[in-house]
């Protein structure tokens, strides 16, 4: 029954199919303006310091899901191994769902409650929520919370993401952007 009753989430996708997660072949690449580009397997990602948080999720279209329980990795722990170079100011999160991508400034990415989440409500992230990892940035609307992240490219400035190219704000602060507030 829990599968049929609406959970409050709506699944927004832009491609014809949802990416399929293969645990053995999946890799997360971190490249761009970094001292040492790294490629992490799912196990290597899970071995990084794990954090949990409960935060609300807001969609720009008007729906919200309260008290989502996330488990994942903080960006400072994720970036530590790759070591951003001087001049690095932003990062682009590339989704396995082509052509979806979005970006954050490094300052935004280092906010205390920004994670790359691999668990949701006590279970591994489900396919429709971006398995195996998605970005969680509760202060910003859902379209910045990129699902199916497979590559993080460090850049000198934010690049307009999928929805920004379609007129949405780059800094998608909840309640203070996209015509709200």
């Amino acid at each position: 029954m829990r599968d049929i009753v609406p959970s409050g989430w709506r699944i927004y996708t832009v491609a014809a199919t949802m990416p399929v997660f293969n645990r053995t072949t999946w890799r997360l690449r971190i490249d761009g303006l970094v001292e040492r580009p790294v490629t992490l397997s799912y196990e290597q990602l899970r071995a990084l310091p794990r954090v949990e948080q409960v935060s609300d999720f807001h969609c720009v279209t008007g729906w919200s899901v309260k008290n989502v329980h996330w488990g994942g990795v903080r960006f400072r722990d994720l970036l530590a191994a790759a070591r951003p170079r001087t001049g690095a100011a932003a990062l682009t999160l590339v989704s396995a769902e082509k052509p979806y991508a979005d970006s954050l400034t490094l300052d935004q990415a280092k906010l205390a409650d920004v994670l790359l989440a691999y668990e949701m409500d006590g279970k591994p992230l489900r396919r429709e929520h971006g398995a195996p990892v998605r970005l969680v940035i509760p202060e910003m609307y859902g379209y910045k919370n990129v699902k199916w992240v497979e590559r993080i490219t460090v850049t000198d400035q934010p690049e307009p993401g999928y929805w920004e190219q379609r007129g949405y704000d780059t800094d998608a602060w909840v309640g203070r952007s996209n015509g709200y507030g």
Partner: peptide, 12 residues
């Protein structure tokens, strides 16, 4: 419905 969204995909 999320489960139906996943099953069918092809949202566009």
């Amino acid at each position: 419905l999320p489960r139906l969204s996943e099953l069918v995909s092809r949202r566009p």
